[in-house]
Amino acid sequence: MLRYALKRLLSLLLSLAVASLVIFFVIEVAPGDPASFMLGINAQPETVAALRSELGLDVAKWQRYLDWTGGMLTGDFGTSYTYRTPVAEMIRDRLWVSLPLALYALTLSTAIAFPAGIYAASRRGKPGDIAVMGATQIGVAVPNFWFAMMLVLIFAVNLRWFSAGGFAGWDTGVWTGIRSLTLPAISLALPQAAILARVMRSSLLDILGEDFMRTARAKGLSRRQALWRHGMRNALIPVLTIIGLQFSFLLAGSIIIEQVFYLPGLGRLVFQSISSRDLIVVESVVMLLVFSVILVNFLVDLAYALVDPRLRART
């Protein structure tokens, strides 16, 4: 088990190194010079050159790559070209919105999907199954910003239970923070829950057809006991994969929802930095997202090994 974990960790570090190279050089070759962008089209060439050297854009690319990655390792993400503030601080502020939002949405999605998937699987082909599957079909098909607008109309505009957007920060109290993230989290969670419920259902149905489920019944377990004691752990393996993918998506992919609810999240930060050629912010945020994806995959790999003894043995 320890060796397995170490191997996964090594693969994590390698992936990070490769990802940082790719991110840096892809963004560097993208057209548009930050210095001339910041100073506008009428700027004097000397001013641009001065700004370039101030921003550290005039040294060799390799040198800048090493500075960038070395800085990240010590927590120094550099200074934003546009705002002239440390990137680390900007990201930290935004993470305080995006990370709770992603976790909130993931919790909701799992809380909806597990019961729905299990219910549908246990009533295969019956009206309950058909109803759940129909609902998930809609959930997959309808984009999340539509849910967002409907939720705003119902709960913010008409019922006035929640505010329609904005985020006051955690200083005003945890409860206020959670309240302002609730509607965005629900709209993010619904499509994810629909996907997850379908995976849960089909995974369980596969397991229900396995020989060892029949063996369990032959031992005298009831259907329910067989499902919980023998089915669930085996069925979780594919579900874990999807949960891992969804977390990464929720962390980065909520740009539209952040726009709808006017939340100062990571998605908006990336969007704004790309528009203003604030390359160093883009690089750092993308790197952070890559890191989170790889980290989540690492955790999912470890979870696999906990669930499945065959994986522990193979290494």
């Binding site: 060892f212 029949r214 369990a216 752990r233 499945d308 065959r310």
Partner: peptide, 9 residues
């Protein structure tokens, strides 16, 4: 089928 009659986990 003894290969699949037992729960692998």
């Amino acid at each position: 089928e003894p290969m699949t009659a037992l729960n692998p986990v």
